[in-house]
């Protein structure tokens, strides 16, 4: 149970949030132009690493806003939180 600093509401308990998987996967603008493999890559392939990971989180029981989190999955340490559309502040 970690604490997440929502960029809109501040520090809140993890139980207020919903995880949304890997961040920075952009929905292709022209899906019909993609091969099956390329589409499958967008649709199914997600990283699940032990270490620093870029993730989407939603303040589901709060402001309902989506944002990005950089989290170390090995110890749940959160390195940065930033809004949708912003560039990652580190790396």
């Amino acid at each position: 149970m970690f604490i997440i600093t929502c960029p809109f509401c501040g520090e809140r308990d993890q139980s207020e949030f919903a995880a949304g998987g890997e961040a920075h996967i952009v929905r292709p603008k022209q899906p019909t132009e993609l091969s099956d493999d390329e589409w499958a890559d967008f649709l199914f392939m997600r990283k699940n690493i032990k270490g620093v990971q870029f993730e989407r989180w939603n303040h589901a029981h709060g402001c309902r806003k989506w944002f990005n989190v950089i989290r170390d999955t090995s110890n749940d340490k959160i390195h940065a939180v930033y809004k949708m559309g912003e560039k990652p502040p580190i790396k």
């Binding site: 919903a18 949304g20 952009v26 929905r27 989407r56 939603n58 989506w66 949708m84």
Partner: peptide
Amino acid sequence: LSKLEDYLQTEWP
């Protein structure tokens, strides 16, 4: 509602 919000906020802002 969550799914539609997700698309609105992240894919089609």
